[in-house]
Nucleic acid binder design. Structure first.
Lengths: 209, 209
DNA sequence: GATATTAGTTAGTGATCAATCGCTAACTAT
DNA sequence: ATAGTTAGCGATTGATCACTAACTAATATC
């Protein structure tokens, strides 16, 4: 007995399944047949909804973009101080990765980047937006005297985003052997503590200082 | 006119070509035919030296491992202070990536990880070794009073390795639009400056502090 | 209840790849 | 010189993919 659903519902199912399966198999190894099996369709059934496989990846990318943006705006509380907002942003991002672990793999997949320029730019834009959010918050907290004045807010953002990325990578290749959000907030405190204070930090010993 | 070389020389050539081509195409899209063309062999000629393609990847992994370890030991100067040794280590790692940009792609390739457990463990071991080197140096500089006492050396290592990883990713997806080693040492100074001093940093304002 | 629309199926195609096999020709040792 | 070894080639094969065309059946519309 053939189960028949609206195109809209099916499309959503297919995108969901892709997002889930891209995690275990990796975006490059994920075939239309595997996706079809997961959704309960035959393999050509996928192409009724996404004429080219690339169209499917674009839909997935759009979904990821929406998820990330929604996640960020949800984490933003204008009443909180800028440092706390950075904390919230990082925590939200790590929770999102934990709940949808395919996101980093999709975001950094060479397969998707090389084949579709628009996709590459969309992902680059997403990462830039996160960077900018953090950089702006860093600038605000610096103006409020909570952050050292001798540090470029962009550098703060680079280091914080790098922390998230490095942690996600380590989490992934270690087989997810630890709580991402917990470890992340611990590391973030260490990171932020180095930036604290309105004045310069004491000089570092060593040849380059 | 058929050019004939010793198996040893050919193997080395093939590994070199693979390492070079894996950068532009990505490890997953790199075919035996492409490698053969680059080396000047026919496609089946590759299999004379590496019966399975996976064998080739293992040889590449071994080569990468040797390169990284050699790079680290070369960067270590026992007469230098621990902080300077961290600087040297990071700089060396970034220079290696700059001269062989396929390394991150190979190290973090899902294709290689999922198909071969040994490879995955080898790569994980490499990253752990780098982590340990930095953590040990951080512990030594802490004992020497050059680093805050309230910071876990392991966390220092996590943040520094994360810095390198995040930077390498950004360098890669930005189309290599900046000097990796230069940007890296600048960021590292910012990072290290937050850890400087034998005492605790001033407390951070915010709910969690 | 007939008709049009459209989700889904069955069967198949062409392209791409890793891998195989039988053979040739270049080195090496006797 | 001769025999044995081995690097490399030409032709092919089987598997895996994304993708297509023709048909079928469920749902909506009138």
């Amino acid at each position: 007995m053939r189960v028949r659903k609206s195109a809209e519902a099916r499309k959503s199912e297919i995108v969901n399944a892709t997002l889930r399966l891209a995690d275990t198999l990796g975006p490059e190894r994920l075939t239309t047949e595997t996706i079809a099996d997961a959704v309960g369709l035959t393999q050509p059934g996928i192409f009724r909804h996404f004429p080219k496989k690339q169209d499917l990846w674009e839909a997935v990318a759009a979904r990821v973009g929406v998820m990330m943006e929604a996640n960020w705006t949800k984490a933003q509380d204008p009443r909180a101080g800028p440092i706390d907002q950075i904390r919230a942003l990082v925590a939200a991002q790590l929770r999102l990765i934990q709940s949808t672990p395919a996101i980093p793999a999709i975001l950094f997949s060479r397969e998707l980047h090389t084949k579709n320029k628009g996709l590459r730019e969309a992902f680059f834009g997403l990462l830039s937006r996160l960077h900018q959010l953090i950089a702006d918050l860093a600038a605000r907290s610096r103006d409020a005297g909570q952050l050292r004045r001798d540090i470029d807010p962009d550098d703060v953002a680079f280091l914080v985003v790098g922390l998230v990325q490095g942690l996600a990578v380590r989490w992934s290749i270690s087989g997810r052997g630890f709580d991402l959000a917990r470890e992340g907030s611990r590391l973030l405190e260490t990171q932020l503590s180095g930036f604290a204070g309105g004045d310069s930090a004491p000089p570092l010993k060593g040849s380059r200082t």
